[in-house]
Design a protein around this nucleic acid. Sequence first.
DNA 1: CGGACAATTGATCTACCTCAAAATTGGTGG
DNA 2: CCACCAATTTTGAGGTAGATCAATTGTCCG
Lengths: 244, 244
Amino acid sequence: MPQTLAPLLRKLESVAVLSEPERAAILALPVTVRQMRADHDIVRERDRPTQSCLVLDGWLCRYKILETGTRQIFSFHIAGDVPDLQSLFLNLMDHNLGSLVQSTVAFIPHDSIRALAVKFPRLAELFWRDTLIDAAIFREWIVGMGRRDAPSRIAHLLCELYLKQRAIGLARGYSCDFPITQAVLGDALGLSTVHVNRSLMELRGRGLITLEKHVLTILKWDELQGEGGFDPTYLHIEPLAVAA
Amino acid sequence: MPQTLAPLLRKLESVAVLSEPERAAILALPVTVRQMRADHDIVRERDRPTQSCLVLDGWLCRYKILETGTRQIFSFHIAGDVPDLQSLFLNLMDHNLGSLVQSTVAFIPHDSIRALAVKFPRLAELFWRDTLIDAAIFREWIVGMGRRDAPSRIAHLLCELYLKQRAIGLARGYSCDFPITQAVLGDALGLSTVHVNRSLMELRGRGLITLEKHVLTILKWDELQGEGGFDPTYLHIEPLAVAA
DNA sequence: CGGACAATTGATCTACCTCAAAATTGGTGG
DNA sequence: CCACCAATTTTGAGGTAGATCAATTGTCCG
């Protein structure tokens, strides 16, 4: 399976040009590919994983379940992401990672990632950088939950998920996949399903977006961005990503 | 200034035992020490820092200002923290770092941190790990903002800040410094000052805490923890920290 | 074609907000 | 050491975004 790790390579190369040995070393990583059904947990709170998971296809999310049984989602992940890279140095999982839809993932043993990092410090830097962007997204998420009302919170997330997909070539014009139900959206934004629905209708009513059959289309990018107070700086998407 | 970097050393050694060369290399880092008045920005959004900042004494916080002028704080930092370590690989600041009270910080050039990381991969891991914990705290913060009401959100933060201080020996019994005004607390938790005040009174009324003259005392740890749904796992504090 | 899930709508309730003022507290200069 | 100012904390009184509960109406898939 020579091209299995292509999504990872593409992501790393959107930030920096890799040397041939670096590319080769990445492609030589031992992986276990696995298909997951929708709504299936990949890693759970309190687990002590010995491998991390690269998304090849599909959508994953990370979340916690509270004592009360409510769920809080704090990230969505698509091809090229390694959502639980943090388990490389934080042995004990403090949250869950699960699939939102049917997905394909590749498991990479921690040992081989560590070996890679020691041998190629620059790759270590790129992986590290990736976890830093993860944190930057969390920060922006906090800002939204603390200070934005429901419609802007939703608008902001739509902008983010659209750009994330576009950066890896998964958008078509101003459209992209959006396999997230309103209930899931509520769990991510700290809103009730009902209120998500109403806010979404407002955005549609104002002609900013279209959202049907799990496809999002942004009709008025500038206005949607304005509504969400969205400034893409925090995603740290490099010009390289666009150039490619 | 042989002991300037002691807080950093103490923090790293709470996770792993360092070799003599590693200790020496850290202590040999070139630093610029600076005193800051309260409410002073150290790094601002859009800056491109060439150094990171180690807290030696005092309290810092990271925050963003929205278009509307409101502020959202997403972290507090005390001695031993390097709040803007992420600028090592994310060149452009996407938020601000400022002092909450009079503080002492040490600036360390990125170049020398990078050199240290390449030479001692294990130190790189420890720094990396630290930024991962940063992210873990953000995740928990999101859970609180999305799913906890005001009193538990506050209770949770009190637990966190108490433990953070205790882990580096800054607590006395169940008491610790708490130089955070109710307005600042509101900016951190996405609440109005008025509501922070009322929730705080409730916690006091129920005899869980005492908070006066900028000193927090936790009277009923178990109940406060219960109120906040606080599980310290996400802080990833190692047994070593307690042993020391 | 039925069953399960997802979206939509209606009605009521409440946690938290805003505005406004009063009471404390802490720091500072005389 | 006291008086005074500014920043905090506290209290009161509405107002509202968003929650909850409960149906109803799609929509997709086997």
